[in-house]
Nucleic acid binder design. Structure first.
Length: 568
RNA sequence: UGACCUAUGGUGUAAUGGUAACACAGCAGAUUUUGAUUCUGUCAUUCUAGGUUCGAGCCCUAGUAGGUCAACCA
């Protein structure tokens, strides 16, 4: 009964403003009850977590309302766009777990767009302007004063047509002429001051090759593409809000009475602290070598997060948790980290790994003996089973799990103190060996043979205040581990006014490579991108650059650590 | 100082004219063979001023603050 109630509560959870709009449209039978969205990336960079928000929104809305969602590449600027980006975008969307209805390209519509432009010229609603960029910009003046009409604004239809065809046919050089919509040079909205529809561009297009000498601008192409695809809800980010009247103006002049028309709606883009989110900046970090490519685990790109060990489910949960609204927002990176911990806690197998090893010798344990102890794979998942791991006289433990002069609250190994070796025995610190510099090289202990985990003996049930992880020295696998920290040391690197360039705020310690780590032998069977919890340390995944000789693990995120916090 | 948009705990998001709630973060405690997880408790919120109304976070007006717009980018 209680579960039923919970389900009802889930379903009746409050709607975001876009869901409200859609439900209202559905109720009024707008678009005959259809819901059709689209995700429209420009293939000029890799997708990042901000795009993930948009993807989850567009695909999620289509899913929720039994509609469709297209993937449409907005490829109207061949000077910036490349096939490599198309491929990566498709891979990232699939990895996130979404399937598009159709894969489409704005360039699929270049012929139709051209025909509509001719139609607008014939209706006296578009004209060819021979002025250069500077002159046009000057005539637009500023938002507070009226604009100045171009001297070419009232050319005859015949002349406009002739020139536009010539532009298409490559008669005129780049930059010499453009096609403008004749809207309103006095509009307080700058986008309405006779916006540019087409520019001359002699660039090779990744799909249409050298067919075109002119390419449409975003404002002329986007709404019409939505219209052609019969998109119902065209969802974009806030900075396009001022474009909406123009979006509608073109459709007013193109769509016929009674035809379904897309409506543009705007939401606030995602901002995350301690990172940057603009494609331009991310490209710069890649090109200038501040990171090792678009999929560097420190990047907020989808491919970076994937390599870091984030799961698709954790990113979807994140998108859901942050919500959708219209006000500017900055999400704490801790929310993303919480989402991945939440998922990995339920799904990641536990293994033992010692990142900063010190040798520990159990003096009263038989030399040469190896026994196997049983370890649960995941206490949060009862179906995950268990495994056997080797235990011997010499093991490695974490250097910070031992202290010579320990404070009272230190629950780990000390001289004369007891601690449990997880899944094995209780040991007691006896003595230490140091090198000439005073560094501890060996810790000698004794163990209580009756305290083996799971043996059921009275002694095994004894409580000791600490439990630490370990690996058998002769059986462990030596691996590399990469510890990642936030890429920027400033909360808002892009907005920091105290530095000339955001790159000055890059965290110099964002990557730390450890090459003397020991992991239990069961990892030998791990595959690239497999995720684990290194017990008591954090979540890690196997990097794709691993070889059978040298495994490389990336730290996704640490475990929450109230001990280190308390120490500060 | 033109147009458009926005304003709720530290950060997000709800409350649809009727008791301001949920999550993250923080703090305190319980449990724990991971100082994790889990559980409990706790701190903290409607930009300002008017107005409408029995009643306003919500509606209206004005102000203030922030964002966007003057690419042949998207």
């Amino acid at each position: 009964m209680k579960i039923e109630n919970n389900n009802i509560e889930e379903e009746e959870k409050s709607l975001n403003f876009l869901e409200e709009i859609i439900e209202n449209d559905l109720k009024n039978n707008v678009n005959n009850g259809r819901v059709h969205t689209r995700f429209p990336p420009e293939p000029n960079g890799y997708l990042h977590i901000g795009h993930a928000k948009s993807i989850c929104l567009n695909f999620g809305l289509a899913d929720k309302y039994k509609g469709l969602c297209n993937l449409r590449f907005d490829d109207t600027n061949p000077s910036k766009e490349e096939q490599e980006y198309v491929d990566s975008i498709k891979e990232d969307i699939k990895w996130l777990g979404f399937e598009w209805h159709k894969e489409l390209y704005t360039s699929d519509y270049f012929d139709q767009l051209f025909d509509w432009a001719v139609m607008l010229i014939k209706q006296g609603k578009a004209y060819v302007d021979d002025q250069n960029q500077e002159e046009i910009s000057k005539q637009r003046t500023s938002p507070t004063e009226p604009g100045i009409e171009s001297p070419f604004r009232n050319r005859s239809v015949e002349e406009n047509l002739k020139l536009f065809y010539e532009m298409r046919d490559g008669i005129h050089p780049e930059g010499s002429r453009i096609l403008r919509a004749k809207v309103d040079m006095n509009s307080p909205n700058m986008h309405m001051r006779d916006p540019i529809m087409y520019r001359i561009m002699r660039a090779h297009h990744h799909r249409t090759g050298d067919k075109w000498n002119i390419y449409p601008m975003y404002d002329y192409a986007h709404g019409q593409s939505d219209f052609i695809e019969q998109i119902t809800h065209s969802i974009c980010t806030l900075e396009f809000e001022n474009h909406r009247p123009l979006y509608d103006w073109f459709l007013d002049n193109i769509a016929q009475e009674g035809e379904d028309r897309p409506k543009q709606r705007e939401f606030a883009r995602l901002n995350l602290n301690y990172t940057v989110m603009s494609k331009r900046k991310l490209l710069e970090l890649v090109k200038d070598g501040f990171v090792n490519g678009w999929d560097d685990p420190r990047m907020p790109t989808i491919s970076g997060l994937r390599r870091r060990g984030y799961t698709p489910a954790s990113i979807r949960a994140f998108a859901k948790r942050i919500g959708v609204a219209k006000r500017e927002n900055v999400i704490d990176i801790a929310v993303l980290e919480h989402c991945v911990r939440e998922d990995l806690n339920k799904t990641a197998p536990r293994i033992m790994a010692v990142l900063n090893p010190v040798k520990l010798i159990i003096d009263n344990y038989p030399e040469g003996k190896t026994e196997y102890v049983t370890a649960e794979n995941n206490p949060e998942d009862e179906n995950s089973g268990s495994r056997e791991m080797p235990f011997a006289r010499e093991i490695y433990i974490e250097r910070e799990d031992f202290m010579e002069d320990a404070p009272k609250k230190f629950f780990r190994l000390t001289l004369g103190g007891e601690v449990r070796l997880k899944n094995a025995y209780i040991i007691k610190g006896e003595s230490i060996v140091k090198d000439a510099d005073g560094n501890i090289t060996e810790i000698h202990c004794t163990y209580d043979v009756d305290t083996k985990s799971g043996s059921g003996s009275e002694a095994s049930k004894r409580k000791v205040k600490g439990t630490i992880h370990w690996v058998s020295a002769k059986d462990a696998v030596k691996v590399d581990v990469k510890l990642y920290d936030r890429l920027f040391s400033d909360e808002n690197p892009a907005g920091n006014k105290e530095v000339a360039d955001y790159k000055e705020l890059i965290n110099p310690d964002s990557l730390q490579t450890l090459s003397n780590c020991f992991v239990e032998p069961s990892v030998m069977s791990a595959k690239s991108e497999d995720r684990f919890q290194f017990q008591r340390t954090g979540y890690f995944c196997l990097d794709k650059d691993s070889t059978p000789e040298k495994l490389i693990f990336n730290r996704t995120v640490t475990l929450k650590d109230s001990w280190s916090k308390k120490q500060k």
